[in-house]
Simulated scan of single mutants.
Amino acid sequence: MKPKILVFSGSTRKGSYNKMLAKLVSKHLTHAKADVTTICLSDYPLPLYDGDLEENVGIPENVFKLRALIEAHHGIFIACPEYNSSITPLLKNTLDWISRIQLPDEEPLQVFQKSVYAVGGATPGVYGSMRGLLHLRTVLEMSLGCLVLPEMISINFAAKAFDENGDLTKAHHAKRMQKLVERFVKEASHVKLQDN
Score class of each variant (00 low, 15 high):
Lys114Ser: 15
Ser99Asn: 02
Pro81Lys: 03
Arg176His: 12
Ile101His: 05
Gln113Trp: 10
Ile98Met: 14
Tyr127His: 07
Phe157Ile: 04
Gln113His: 09
Ser143Gly: 05
Ala174Gly: 07
Val111Asp: 13
Trp97Met: 12
Leu134Gln: 15
Gly132Pro: 10
Leu134His: 15
Val139Ile: 15
Gln194Met: 00
Glu107Asn: 15
Lys160Ser: 15
Phe112His: 04
Gln110Tyr: 04
Lys175Gln: 14
Asn165His: 12
Ile78Gln: 09
Leu134Trp: 11
Leu103Asn: 00
Leu109Asn: 07
Asp105Phe: 14
Trp97Ala: 08
Ala159His: 14
Phe162Trp: 06
His173Cys: 09
Val119Arg: 05
Ser99Thr: 04
Leu90Arg: 05
Glu182Pro: 01
Val119Met: 12
Glu151Leu: 10
Pro108Met: 04
Glu151Trp: 07
Ser154Leu: 12
Ser86Ile: 03
Gln194Thr: 02
Arg176Gly: 12
Leu149Asp: 11
Phe77Lys: 13
Phe112Arg: 01
Val191Leu: 00
Asn93His: 12
Ser129Cys: 13
Ile153Pro: 02
Glu187Leu: 13
Arg176Gln: 10
Leu90His: 02
Met130Val: 11
Ala161His: 13
Phe184Asp: 02
Ala174Met: 06
Phe157Ala: 01
Phe77Leu: 14
Ala161Trp: 14
Lys92Gln: 15
Thr88Lys: 00
Leu91Phe: 06
Ala171Thr: 15
His173Gln: 12
Lys170Gln: 08
Gln194Cys: 00
Pro81Met: 08
Val148Leu: 08
His173Arg: 03
Val119Gln: 02
Leu133Ser: 08
Ala159Glu: 15
His135Gly: 07
Gly125Lys: 02
Ala118Ser: 07
Ser86Asp: 01
Glu82Gly: 00
Thr123Pro: 06
Ala174Tyr: 12
Ile78Met: 13
Ser129Val: 03
Thr138Ser: 07
Ala161Ser: 15
Val119Phe: 06
Ser99Pro: 02
Gly145Gln: 06
Cys146Phe: 08
Asp105Ile: 05
Lys92Ile: 08
Ile153Glu: 03
Lys186Pro: 01
Val116Pro: 00
Pro104Asp: 06
Leu90Gly: 05
Leu103Gln: 01
Gln194Gly: 00
Gly166Trp: 11
Ala118Glu: 01
Leu168Thr: 01
Ile155Asp: 05
Ala79Gln: 06
Glu151Cys: 08
Asp167Met: 10
Leu133Met: 13
Pro104Ala: 08
Pro104Tyr: 06
Gln194Trp: 01
Lys92Trp: 11
Glu106Ile: 04
Phe184His: 04
Asn165Ser: 12
Ala171Asn: 06
Lys160Ala: 15
Gln194Phe: 01
Phe162Val: 14
Ala118His: 09
Phe184Leu: 04
Ala158Ile: 11
Leu134Phe: 14
Glu107Phe: 14
Gln178Met: 06
Phe112Asn: 01
